[in-house]
Write a protein that binds this DNA or RNA. Structure first.
Lengths: 241, 241
DNA sequence: TATGCTTCCTTAATGGCTCTAGATAACCTT
DNA sequence: AAGGTTATCTAGAGCCATTAAGGAAGCATA
């Protein structure tokens, strides 16, 4: 192995990688997922086919790498929204991050499709793949914000005794998995909110709502205000429901 | 064109079509979406490649036809659950149909993936494609039940004046689209419930919840009881919330 | 400076795919 | 029996992913 950072070769390699990723994205956006073939990408960057195998071991790996890019870009957009008003309360920053997520998804539907609706190739199941790592960092954004909210102004949670045992066990495991930063019942509220938000976005981007809506934005906003209520973000010190 | 029904030829053709669909499904389930190629399907039914083009004009059309099958099978499963206790109140039958939907999706994840997460090929965008027609019949099941519920024991709806204008306009259009069987504000409640349910199922089947849950069933049940509350299905004549 | 290793790229080739074209047999109607 | 229809075949063009084998250029060290 040569110098992995800094050297001229390494810089050139990075530039080539960036060019390859750019070509993949262009093909995806302009001609759809099926147009992203090794050969087409290679042609696009002025190489001939097999040369790409010096950068990625397979078509799947290339797709996984670019999908990780998309994940990171989405994450960055949400972090930027979160940090735009760093002094605002956690609740406001949660909403900002959620809106940023949808804005990115709407602006980049093809990319979001790869992030979300991809069958997740076997090679990307291993948790050390770039794709999985980017996914974990993505999840952290809203989790971090929710933890902060929980610590500064805890939201109402159900009595754990009211949760069915199988659910409670899974929540306990998840709570441990995030190092106890949320207790199981708070994790439950977090996951519930997250599922509603992400599920709605997924349906919108996959065109499952076309039969009823031409513009999902108000639906999304209503979902957000539902969540604000669940998380007691309504400005008052205690919810006045 | 020869006789389109009844004749011996027509019967043979139907049998061949069924065999083709069966081969597609077997390949999909056992080896994944990518294994469903024209050639592999043809081999499976003992034909050689191009012969399939006498039944379908393209790979996309074949996939669309089988996806429509899946849609119809899912619809039938829900209708069966709905009709199993034809004398039960509409609310109970709604819940039964929802559970049947999830049961089918869990039992047939690959098929559900085609129904839900397929990019919807351009040829299937036309509303007369078998795929779209099956989709419409599918939507009707829960819509019919909700209409019946609305007529027999109306659920609480928001004041239309509280809905933002853009949303209200879309709901009015949708209400007209379903021939006014639900007024816009009731349609809003229906769509909201529908989105939560379908969105959750979609996330489960696409493995987007694996990071937190190993068994989504209790989450689904909690979602259902949320919906039961929204639709005031709780047995009392009026919700006691 | 000369030698050899590494990196990047090429062409050639294999075997798969979709889909078209043309030919052939078998079947149905008249 | 004749003519049209239907179902199938083989051949082939033009894609694709991937492997193999080799060449040129940069870099490092003797």
């Amino acid at each position: 192995m040569a110098a992995s950072t800094g050297g001229r070769r390494a810089r050139l390699r990075q530039a080539t990688l960036a060019e390859i990723h750019g070509a993949v994205r262009t093909l995806l956006v302009e001609q759809g997922s099926a147009a992203v073939t090794i050969n087409a990408v290679a042609r696009h960057v002025g190489m001939s086919g097999p040369a790409l195998y010096h950068y990625y071991a397979s078509h799947d790996e290339l797709v996984g790498a670019v999908t990780a890019d998309f994940f990171r870009e989405l994450t960055a957009a949400m972090e930027e929204a979160r940090d735009a008003h760093a002094d605002a309360p956690a609740g406001a920053r949660i909403l900002a991050a959620c809106r940023a997520m949808r804005a990115w998804a709407i602006a980049h539907p093809a990319e979001f499709g790869w992030i979300f609706a991809s069958p997740i190739s076997p090679s990307d199941r291993r948790s050390d793949s770039p794709r999985q790592q980017a996914g974990q960092r993505f999840e952290q954004v809203l989790l971090d914000l929710t933890v902060e909210l929980w610590q500064t102004r805890p939201f109402p949670v159900p009595d754990p005794a009211d949760l069915p045992a199988p659910l409670r066990e899974q929540l306990t495991a998840y709570s441990a998995n995030i190092e106890g930063r949320l207790p199981p019942e708070a994790a439950h509220v977090f996951l519930t909110c997250w599922i509603r938000l992400y599920g709605l976005l997924c349906m919108e981007v996959l065109h499952q709502l076309d039969f009823a809506y031409t513009d999902v934005e108000p639906v999304f906003e209503e979902c957000l205000s539902d969540l604000a209520q669940v998380l007691a973000l309504d400005g008052a010190d205690q919810p006045t429901v």
